[in-house]
Design a binder for these strands. Sequence first.
RNA 1: GCCGAGGUGGCGGAAUGGCAGACGCGCGAGGCUUAGGACCUCGUGGGAAAUUCCCUUGUGGGUUCAAAUCCCACCCUCGGCACCA
Length: 849
Amino acid sequence: MKRYVPQKIEKKWQKYWEENNFYQAKDFSKKKKFYILVEFPYPSAQGLHVGHCRSYSAMDAIARKKRMEGYNVLFPIGWDAFGLPTENYALRTGIHPEIATKKNIANFKRQLKSLGLSFDWSREINTSDPKYYKWTQWIFLKLFEKGLAYQAEIPINFCPKCKIGLAQEEVIDGKHERCGEEVVLKKLKQWMLKITAYAERLIKDLKDLDYLEKIKTQQINWIGKSEGTEVTFKIENLDFEIKVFTTRVDTIFGVTALVLAPEHPLVEKLVKENGILKEGKIKVENWLEVKEYLKKSVRKSEFERTKLEKERTGIPLKGIFAINPINQEKLPVWVADYVIGTYGGGAVMVVPAHDKRDFDFAKRYQLEIREVVVPKEKNSPLSQPFVEDGVLINSGEFSGLTSKEAREKITRWLKEKGLGKKTVQYKLRDWVFSRQHYWGEPIPLVFCERCAKKIKEKMKEGKIKELEKEYQLGEILNPGWIALSEKDLPLKLPYLEKYQPTGTGESPLAQIEEWVNTKCPKCKGPAKRETDTMPNWAGSNWYFIGYLIKKRKEKNYEYWWDKKKISYWMPVDWYNGGMEHTTLHLLYSRFIYKFLYDIGAVPHPEPYKKRTAHGIVLGEDGRKMSKSFGNVINPDEIIKQYGADTLRVYEMFMGPFDQAISWSSQGVKGVFRFLERIWRLVIRFKEQSGKKVKNLEVESLVQQTIKKVDEDLEKCKFNTAISALMILVNRLEKEKNIQKRHLETLIKLLAPFAPHLAEQLWQELGHKNSVHLQKWPKYNLKLILKETFTLVVQVNGKVRDTIEASINISEEEAKELALRSPKIQKWLEKKKIKKIIFVRNKLINFVVE
RNA sequence: GCCGAGGUGGCGGAAUGGCAGACGCGCGAGGCUUAGGACCUCGUGGGAAAUUCCCUUGUGGGUUCAAAUCCCACCCUCGGCACCA
């Protein structure tokens, strides 16, 4: 073939590789295993995004290289198929989610295959496949059994017009994005998972993992561990305590108010009793205003509530006072929605002199500002709060102590009085695991009135031991909720003609009476099924295990929790994904894996050894690709025009892998030209007839290229690896007669990036076997080292000359050489040399006055 | 607001304490061609008294023989913020 026509070769090789099972990973092979994982796609109606192509191509290059290095590589793929977008798409188009999902998967699969990615398709999974989600449900049952799943009342966004629960993202400016109706919060009972029980381990175990540093930092900050003191403030004339968490108990003498979140138990108590407590002995004088304020804040999301300082508002509970435990001082109590109910007990002590937010709040509402900590040396003016540690003043017996000492002593003092203790707080919150949607895994629980009654009674009688014999921990903690037995899994999602909202905020499943009404597995009495479904995270929590335990039986398959296989393949050696998943999916799946480890279902405490991240691909205009901007690039069209290899190489060459980057149509052309030039190089070689001359310089460059490509691939520096290949090609083009072994090395190095082209050229060179079965080239350090180097000569740090010098020369020799240069002589004229800096094989710098 | 990342030619970027601008795109000149495209060769940060010198890595300051790189302050852009995946 004279010309490079990718369309003519790519399909051919894809078929060849598939028919010969090139990329099937072998369980229990004697070769060293290497498990490469990419985040499996959500099969949306839009089709594959060029962003998928970028990260998959890059990790495919790693997989191909590892295979050439002799590893037993597992590089699987599947579909994260449950989720809200498909359900919304179905509502819009009338196409059932199951059908839409099937169609979308077929399209995604065709697109991925056309890229020539070396996935092991025999292990393909689909989270909406009942055989798969049987195990998703099984994991939930285990969590329930161990008491890590519990019910709690949580407010959800609700559209009163559409009568449907909404996801955060469907709410825009407090309104439902589809109908524009004002969204309200509705409290519903939701299943929660106790991820907070694992907070400490999720931080601690990061230490030994090879994650990008920024990923570790983000996870640690997300978990948000802080050590401090819990201080108990009593309410005057009322048997009620407010527990406040603070990391700065040393500033306790500077407290001038308490501020409660609108969700705080005291506020809720007041709401219930309409602002009047103890039969009128305590009364909130401005109750009407407070009620109005609470109403408003209920509409705001947490994000809005903490966003803008200027909008930070509050309202006093007039007539209610708290007592500062340290000095019995009476403090006003406020409600403010910048205080978050879910963190630190939903209450803060206001110390305006030593906290920025408190300072602003105090200024706004004319609260007292009392200075109790001063810097060790100078005095601070009070235009700004002093937020650092210092020395205590105006603090009774604690005055004169440093902040650090004071925190210890005050905490001890409080503890002795029973008014406080040392505690640890996490920002991490338990995970809301219920969704009022159709397109998700059904939660395998039923509610049984009879069992509920029985459990509650026995609890009252204190017969816990008896209960424990009959019921699981989850069943005791959530009286009435009974787990399905394992043998009844999967609990299949019933096919529903109308998955439209029910009008009550419940899941559409609640409509199917014959499905909802069932028998209690424990007492065989009447029971009702849970109608909420799981969030789409449920299926992606453990999907990397799903690939391992898919078991083929002739034409059929099933999943079987095979610990031997899991032990062979786990942990994942290299997991790549988007930065946007760092705090949710990545943390959730680590939690679930740790839980599975605790119950003995998996052999290690951490699922992923190494985690890297890719940046997103933006449109040519620098904005996110989106239909509404009209800047979406369809990979199908690029493949049609230039071929898959060009698309792959371009996306790896376009910029640093971990950064967001704009698409460039011109850049694609450039890469195509590069591949064409390699093609022509091989064709030219086949026609050349002259005598081959050994060229040490080319030899060295080939070796350098091997080193560069090898090392850059390990560091995800795909762009510079490709640029190294370009430099080699540029050089080889200048050779009159190219050596075959140089070309062979080039093609082997190219194989991970442009697998089809490399395969074709390998055959063109007369080989019968595949380039992908060759050994990865090794470089020879001796051949890289050259005899000379460019000595940079500086005067006062500025480059004034460069001299070719032999390698490893001494400072004396370099000095002599440099002083011989007329340029340098000119710069040193009439100047006294004060100092000489010499860096071996690099530079010499003359420092003159 | 909180947490994280980033800012270098006309553009994507390279260089992580030692020659700023590798490699690619674009552009310019020339070659080939009836012509265009493709291809090949050379050039391409800015300024000037142009073989030489000065300036230049968001802005201002600092450390160092030497700073895009380290430190401090500020400005701008992007990602995440828990029911999108």
